[in-house]
Simulated scan of single mutants.
Amino acid sequence: MSLPRAGFFAFFSCLFLASTASAMTVTPTQIEMTSTGRTSRSAITVVNNGTDPLAVELVVKTATLDEAGVPKTRPAGDDFLVMPPQALIAPGATQNFRIQWLGEPLLDKSETFLIYVDQIPVKLPKRARGVQVVFGMGVMVNVAPPRGKPSLQVVKSGIVTDAHGRRHPTLTVFNPTNVHALFPQSTVRISGGSWSSTLSSGELAQSIGIGLVQPGHRRRFILPITLPERVTAVQSSLEFRPKP
């Protein structure tokens, strides 16, 4: 399932006056690349699930995430070759878009991009009425340098209360390396007094998602644990095991 252009990665859905929209599926939602070698190339697949032709274009942005995971984006320039940059996809058809890194082959540190697959509004006859829902779906692309290994350090632990009065532990981590780290590639242990709980990598991936921590950055995560009433403070530790 593709990521809408709203929420966490600031992917947006826009409304335009026109007729009916064509639904689309974008895969994958996350791509891991390197600045050199075979993995400096990848592809994005778009499927037109609708009954009308689907016009789309791919737009590349550089992204920087703050501690809460909210991105700030800017144009990516000529860092990527996207082929084709636009396409008209027939109903029920599939279009593959090739992406290739054209930026610095010897990157100093990882860079993160958001590649938006934006539906292009079609021009309709003057008599046509209604609302066309024009979607933008997004793919996160992380480009790692040819050398380096990610690491995560626990900076701070805390507790937050949600809208339903349930308390959850928080964990702030720091990436001191030149390679981006994915927090769900960790096993996390939370404890408070005689109570403790452990979250596996799979549980973190299911509840948190990508969990990107960029080089030299911090990220604060709310963990999917409801704390017992007797726990008033927590300590955290993690074992980070990045995939090769």
Rank of each mutant, 00 (worst) to 15 (best):
P4Q: 02
P4C: 05
A10R: 12
A18R: 05
S19T: 12
T25I: 15
M33D: 07
T36A: 08
T45K: 15
T51R: 10
D52V: 07
D52H: 05
L58R: 05
V59H: 07
V60T: 13
T62R: 11
T64C: 07
G69Q: 00
G69W: 00
K72G: 14
D78Y: 03
V82H: 08
V82C: 13
P84E: 14
A90M: 00
Q100A: 10
W101E: 00
W101P: 00
L102G: 02
L102Y: 05
E104Q: 14
L106D: 14
E111F: 03
T112Q: 11
L114A: 02
V117D: 06
P125C: 09
R127F: 11
G130R: 03
V131D: 01
Q132F: 02
V133T: 09
V141W: 02
N142L: 07
P145R: 04
P145L: 05
G148I: 01
K149Q: 11
S151T: 07
Q153G: 12
V154F: 11
V155L: 09
G158V: 03
I159V: 10
I159E: 05
V160D: 01
R166T: 05
T172H: 09
V173A: 11
P176G: 03
V179P: 00
V179D: 00
P184R: 02
Q185A: 12
V188E: 04
R189K: 12
L199Q: 04
E203P: 06
G216L: 01
G216W: 02
R220H: 06
R220S: 14
F221Y: 14
I222F: 06
I222D: 05
I225T: 02
T226D: 15
V234W: 02
S236N: 15
L238H: 13
